[in-house]
């Protein structure tokens, strides 16, 4: 087993764990953390393949993904603070009113 394949297997495992966090947990902050783990696994896979093929496009793509992930978590956490202010809890089952 080569280094490249080992990194890809680690990326697959991290992706699975992120998916389980998103599916299982009921806290919205845990769901956001799971999304971060999913993005991190995708980044690891991109960098591994790009590095083993002697290219730099994957690394630049990862640069953009990290920027977008920072923006996404800032928006998500401000939504979460709003949720806590309105419902008194950040569990997903407490926010059941779909109202504009």
């Amino acid at each position: 087993m080569t280094n490249d394949m080992f990194i890809q297997i680690l990326a697959a495992f991290l992706f699975t764990m992120g998916l389980l966090v998103v599916l299982l947990r009921r806290d919205t902050i845990m769901i956001l953390m799971g999304i971060e783990l999913l993005l991190n696994a995708a980044n690891l896979s991109l960098v591994g393949f790009s590095n083993s093929s002697h290219m730099i496009e994957g690394q630049l793509q990862v640069f953009f993904i990290i920027t977008i992930a920072a923006a996404e978590s800032a928006i998500g956490l401000s939504i979460l603070v709003n949720l806590y202010r309105n419902f008194g809890s950040i569990k997903t089952q407490s926010a059941t009113t779909l109202k504009g």
């Binding site: 764990m17 992120g18 966090v21 299982l24 947990r25 783990l37």
Partner: peptide, 9 residues
Amino acid sequence: AAVLAAYMV
């Protein structure tokens, strides 16, 4: 990393 990710779940 794998152990920490599994414990995170």
